[in-house]
Design a binder for these strands. Sequence first.
DNA 1: GAACCGCGAGGAAACGTTTCCGAGGTGTTG
DNA 2: CAACACCTCGGAAACGTTTCCTCGCGGTTC
Lengths: 334, 334
Amino acid sequence: MSQRRRPTIHEVAKVAGVSISSVSRALNGNTSNADMVDRVNAAVREVGYVPSVVAQSLKTRHTGQVAFAMEDIGNAAYLEMVRRIQPTLRDEGYRLLLHSTGADVEDELGVLASLSQNYVDGLILCPLRVTDRHVEALRQTAVPVVVIGLLPDDVPVDNVRADSRVGARLAVEHLAEAGARRIAFIDGPLDTVPGQARYDGYRSGLAAAGLEPDDAIVRFTDFQFEAGRQTARELLTAHPDVDAVLGANDLIAMGVLHALRELGRDVPGDVRVVGMDDTPLAATSFPPLSSVSLGSADRGRIAAELLLRRLDGDDAPPERVTVPPSLTVRESSR
Amino acid sequence: MSQRRRPTIHEVAKVAGVSISSVSRALNGNTSNADMVDRVNAAVREVGYVPSVVAQSLKTRHTGQVAFAMEDIGNAAYLEMVRRIQPTLRDEGYRLLLHSTGADVEDELGVLASLSQNYVDGLILCPLRVTDRHVEALRQTAVPVVVIGLLPDDVPVDNVRADSRVGARLAVEHLAEAGARRIAFIDGPLDTVPGQARYDGYRSGLAAAGLEPDDAIVRFTDFQFEAGRQTARELLTAHPDVDAVLGANDLIAMGVLHALRELGRDVPGDVRVVGMDDTPLAATSFPPLSSVSLGSADRGRIAAELLLRRLDGDDAPPERVTVPPSLTVRESSR
DNA sequence: GAACCGCGAGGAAACGTTTCCGAGGTGTTG
DNA sequence: CAACACCTCGGAAACGTTTCCTCGCGGTTC
C-alpha cells in the first residue's frame, strides 16, 4: 500500500517530452496531431496518470455530481425514484449524491443552502412541504433544481408532479363500479400535501359515482402499517356496513387487510380494499392488493431528464410535468 | 436569477480590510484575535460568502465524500445498509455517493478504478462476487475501502460479514424444535456466495437436529417472489409430507406462503415457513413471516464506522467483523 | 521570393482555497 | 534599557487542472 503521490499532468508532460497544455489538449481531444495524442497516451499509461476530478472541477466550474434529496430512502416511492434517477444520470456521466433529510425541514433548507458550496451541478428535491423559506431559497439557488412534488405556480423551477388527487378518485370510481356503496377512506395526515390531495380525490370520486360522502367513515392517521391496522380495526368495528376501504398508501392498505382478517371479514367478498403507490408489497400481499400507481419511477426518470437538460444549458422557461396515475387491479378488489 | 459570480475569499478580505490568509484562518479557527474573527464574520455575512468546497478539496486533499457501491439499491438488504450508512457518515460531515452497479462486474471494477480520480475519501463496497481482479484492485486502491461481504483472508481490507450459514442453521433448528420433521429448502442459485452458505447452513441445521438430509426436498431458483412461488408449488405437490419450508430470503418465503395458500394448506398448522433477511415484507405478510435477520442495518453502520476510523487516520491492521444473525419468530412458524 | 495566413505547441495565468514563511509589533525578562 | 521571544498578520506559493495568448514554423499566394 505504497502511498506514493499520484502522478500529475506534469509528470505525463515530462515523460512525453511535451508541455502540460499539450497533454491537456490531447486528453480532452482539442488537438489534431495524431502523433502527439499517441505520445501522450503512452506517457499516461507509463506513469499511470489519472486526472484529478477536483482540479478539473475547480477549473471547469462543474463537478459532474447531482444530488437527490428526500425524506427517507426507505420510503418505497423515493426508492423507486432513485432507481431510475441514478442510471439516467450515470449514462450522462453524472454521479449521484444522496441526502436523506429525515423529515427535518431545517435539514431540507440546509441542503438548499449548501448548494452554494457548489459541490454539485444540480439538485432533485422532494420537499416534505413547501414553506415560504423554501420558495425563497428556490428562487436563488446557485444551481438548477428540479422539484418533485407540488409547488406554487410562481416558483420558477422545473417541477414534476404526481396526481394523487386523480389517483384517489380513480380508486374510488373503480370500487364503486365493482359494486361498493359504503367506501371508507383511511388517509395520512391532512396537513400534508398528499394527505390533502388524496382526500379531495376521494370526495370527488364519491361525487362522480353518485355516492353520498360521509366523514364518519374517513380517518386520518400516519402513512404506516400499524397505524392503518389499528385505525381500520376501529373503523370497521364502528361501521360494519362498510363494504370497501381505500388506503392512502400501500402500508395503510396492508394494515387494513390485516384488520379485516382479524375481524373475520373476507376480502374481497365482504370488503374490497385498494391501496396507493403500487409498491412491491402490493403484489406479494394476500390477497394481492389492488393499488394506484402514482408513477414514482416515471417521475424520477423525468426529473432526471429535465435536470440534464438544464445542465446542458437549456434556459427555456421552467417546465411543469404531471405524471398520470394508473390503477392496477388485483384480487383485493375484484 | 441573477447569475452573478459567487463572492470569493478575496472579496471578504477586501470588505473586512484584511488579508485572505487572515480570512481563511478566522474561518477555520486558527487564530486567537476575537476582533479579527468578528470583522471577518461580518464581512462574510455582508457579501454572502460561501466557501467553495472544490477549492478546499484541491488544497486539503480530501473531499468530504464517501461512496457506497452495491448491485441494486432496490434490494432490501442494501437499502437497510444505506439507511444506516448515510446518517452515520453525515454526522461526521461526509456526503454519500451512491453507485448501483446493476449486477455488472465490470462496472464494479470501474468504481474501484475510478477511486484514483480522488472524488471520494473512501468507499464501502458490496461486491457481487470477488474475482482476482477485485483482489488486485483492492490491494492498491487510492483511498480506504471497507468491503461488506465475503473476502479472502489475505486481502488487506476492512471487512464486515453476515453469517448466513449460521442464519440458515438457526432457522432449521428453530423449525425442528417446533416439531417439523420434513424441512424443505428453497435456495437461491448455488453459485452465489449466499446461496452456497445458506445451503451449508441448512445441512448443518438438519444434522444438529438429528434429521436426515434429503436433496429431493431442496430446490435452487432465483431470489425472487415468483420464482419462490412456482418452485414451492411444484415442490409441495411432489412432496406432500413436507411440514416446513425455509426460504433463502423473504421474497422466496412470501412465494412459499402464496403457494401454500393456493394449495389449501394451513400456515403454520400444516406447514411452517421461515424466511431470511427480515425485511419489512415479513412483518406485514399474512401470516406474519418468521425471518432470520442477517443484520443488514448493523453491517451498514459498522462498515461506516470502520471507514470513518480509517479516514481519521487510523492505520491499524485491517479488521474483520462478523455480525451474528438473529431469528425473529412470527406466526408463520409458531 | 517575400509577405501573409493558419495551425500547432509552449508559457503562463487563472480557478479559490490553505498554509508556509517572514516581518512587524508588543510584552517580558535579564 | 536592550535583547529576545512570542504572537498576529500579510505576502506568496501551492494544490492540479484548463485555456488564453503568443510565438514559430510551414505552406500558399501574389
